[in-house]
Computed example of a mutant assay.
Amino acid sequence: MAKQVVLTGNYAAAEAAALCRPEVIAAYPITPQSSIVERLSEKVYNGELDAEMIQVECEHSAMSAVQGAAAGGGRVFTATAAQGLALMYEPYFRMSTLRLPMVMALATRKMTSPETVWSGQQDAMSVREAGWIQIFCESNQEIVDMIIEAYRLAEDPRIRIPVNVCFDGFYSSHLTEGVWLPDQAEVDAFLPDPRMSLPALLNPDHPLSLDPLTAGPILMKYRKDHLEAMTRVLPVLEEIDAAFGKQFGRSYGGGIEAYRTDDADLVLITIAGMSGTAKDAVDLAREHGIHAGLIRLRVTRPFPARQIAAALRGKKAFSVVDRSVCFGWNQGPMHMEVKAALADQSARFSHFSTIGGLGGADISLAELGQVIDKLEEVKDEPREYPVHWLLKD
């Protein structure tokens, strides 16, 4: 029977991962994700989780260890952040391009330098071309549910791509919320049997060369197949989410969440934890007669371009609020991608990139209200306006 408990986002991720019965966990601690793998280590030590816990010397080794286990047909898990993600990049890229399904929690953090350990989304945005699926969570409950859904998505034979379940470091990772933890039997019934969904590539009875030197024509076929699988992710995720909602009573949809957009003139586009504050800003703007709405990006890879374009059709203005930067473009990366999604629309928008929340800086209700006010001012003069920085005085 499901139970309601109060957990940090990191503990929510750990409890959800344990419910999915990973057989191998490899981990190296790094702020702000460390308590995820610490919690899982306790569960293994106490006999609550039947898994092999590998304490490695670095994040490169962590990803390499779970990569080998996944190639052997095991269900695996790890977690990281920031410089740890950068250190594991080589096997991280190989994990996706070998099409080895797994789930990794990513408590997002600003990359150095200047030296920082605080929140931001630069780490996740920096690896968005590495072939992984990226899902961003707004709440601790969504962290629980998306880790469970992510295993079913990654292991689906139509997909077979690893998934990052991302959430804001220190905000979601360390703050507590009430969450419903499903019953183990329910999760077992929801997820496929790994012995059926995870065929072993490494089998001593049938030896093969895994990841040999590959000529260009064959490699191009690998990339084509990978990209085609990515195009199936969003409809399969919607299918999985509908099944999750039917079984557990909670559902989230697909690539985006639309909030009060039906009659909106202007739209904020947000990612992860800032979205709750942004919804409050939209509600306050509505009380003052401003027809504001919000789109929350739930999935950034594959990018939900068609859903974004449809949700913005008929609107006058938008701003994407990024907690990361796109070096060389003087804007946020998701603002750049939303513009790409709208490239084939004839309608013109007033729009600008908003950047804030870097290095743990708060994105306040007042600041998001100011973004809405600025959109209201420019909504009838369609063009791209300069980047708007949420800088403190």
Rank of each mutant, 00 (worst) to 15 (best):
W180C: 11
P182S: 03
P182H: 09
D183K: 10
D183Q: 10
A185E: 15
E186G: 12
E186N: 09
F190M: 04
F190A: 06
L191W: 07
L191Y: 03
P194N: 08
S197F: 00
S197K: 03
S197L: 00
L198M: 13
L198K: 10
A200K: 05
L201S: 05
L202V: 12
P207G: 11
S209E: 09
L210N: 07
D211T: 02
T214I: 15
T214Y: 03
A215P: 10
G216H: 10
P217G: 09
P217W: 10
K221A: 08
K221M: 11
K224H: 14
K224M: 14
K224P: 01
H226Q: 04
E228S: 12
M230S: 08
R232K: 15
P235T: 13
L237K: 01
E238F: 05
E239A: 11
I240Q: 06
A242G: 14
A243S: 09
A243F: 04
K246Q: 08
K246E: 11
Q247D: 03
Q247L: 06
G249M: 07
R250T: 14
G253F: 04
G254C: 02
G254F: 01
A258L: 01
A258F: 00
D262K: 09
D263I: 00
D265C: 02
T270L: 00
G273W: 10
M274C: 06
A278R: 05
A278F: 08
A281L: 12
D283I: 07
R286Q: 13
E287K: 15
H291A: 10
A292D: 08
L297V: 00
R298E: 05
R298A: 00
